[in-house]
């Protein structure tokens, strides 16, 4: 009798657990979930992104001050961190990744919001930009990284780094001190001065520091910045792009990761 009751309770608990796991799957967007998304947004996001999503929250100006970055304007800006082609909108999963990881230096990781809450916020912030209704962003496919880099591959990567003028912005040693960067020529989509990323300091890389992250950044480019997409240049030559990735990683201690 007693054991039976325990069993019953155990089933209840397990069912409950399953139900709560199921909730973590991306919920459908409806009026209730948008309302919930708005509530979360106004408590967590609006301080920088603004109550209207225009990147003009009361704390937003101080992040970059007179320089890049400003908080994203969800109503009209493009997006830097994507798995989609240059100029395309991000997928929902891309937005989820950014919210979960944060952006080093400028945006905290919101892992403390549960998965469901993150999806609700994503649905709410997308509602400001009608382009999300018209364009259906399609993620590019990214291959798995080949096995460990060889010295020759890294050497080839260095040649590509020169050939593709990476050093014009990122500098000969990858320290973000290329001639265009030091001359102050680089501007973001709001015409604010922007720095070239220091490739020797992976902890500050905004789009992630893994080999796949670098591969993705080089493929998609960072919209709203001078960083272009190299997808066209490396189409059908993925192994060359991996060599460039490994060379960039060799500038810091990231090559093993």
């Amino acid at each position: 009798m007693h054991a039976k009751r325990l069993k019953y309770i155990a089933i209840l608990i397990i069912t409950g657990l399953c139900a709560s796991t199921a909730q973590a799957v991306k919920p459908t967007t409806n009026r209730d979930s948008l309302r919930e998304g708005r509530r979360i947004y106004e408590q967590a996001c609006a301080w920088c992104h603004g109550t209207g999503g225009e990147g003009d929250g009361p704390a937003g100006w101080f992040i970059g001050r007179y320089s890049s970055p400003r908080p994203r304007n969800f109503a009209q800006d493009g997006y830097k961190f994507r798995s989609t082609g240059s100029g395309d909108l991000p997928t929902d999963q891309d937005l989820f990744t950014t919210i979960t990881r944060g952006i080093p230096g400028v945006m905290p990781a919101y892992r403390a919001l549960n998965e469901r809450e993150r999806w609700q916020v994503i649905a709410y912030l997308k509602s400001w930009n009608p382009a999300f209704e018209e364009e259906k962003p399609v993620p590019l496919t990214f291959p798995q990284a080949p096995a460990a880099p060889t010295e020759a591959a890294i050497h080839n990567g260095r040649n590509l780094y020169v050939k593709y003028d990476c050093r014009v912005c990122h500098g000969d040693n990858g320290e973000g001190d290329g001639p265009e960067a030091t001359a102050g020529h680089l501007r973001d989509g709001n015409n604010l001065p922007i720095r070239a990323t220091n490739l020797t300091d992976p902890s500050a890389w905004k789009n992630g520091a893994s080999a796949l992250d670098l591969f993705r950044t080089l493929t998609t480019g960072l919209d709203g910045t001078p960083m272009p997409s190299y997808a066209n240049e490396f189409a059908g030559r993925e192994e060359a792009l991996w060599e460039l990735v490994w060379y960039i990683q060799s500038l810091s201690d990231q090559q093993r990761k």
């Binding site: 240059s86 100029g87 480019g221 709203g224 001078p226 272009p228 190299y230 240049e233």
Partner: peptide
């Protein structure tokens, strides 16, 4: 502030 395309 929206990029259409930025390609090398």
């Amino acid at each position: 502030s929206r990029t259409l395309v930025n390609v090398a």
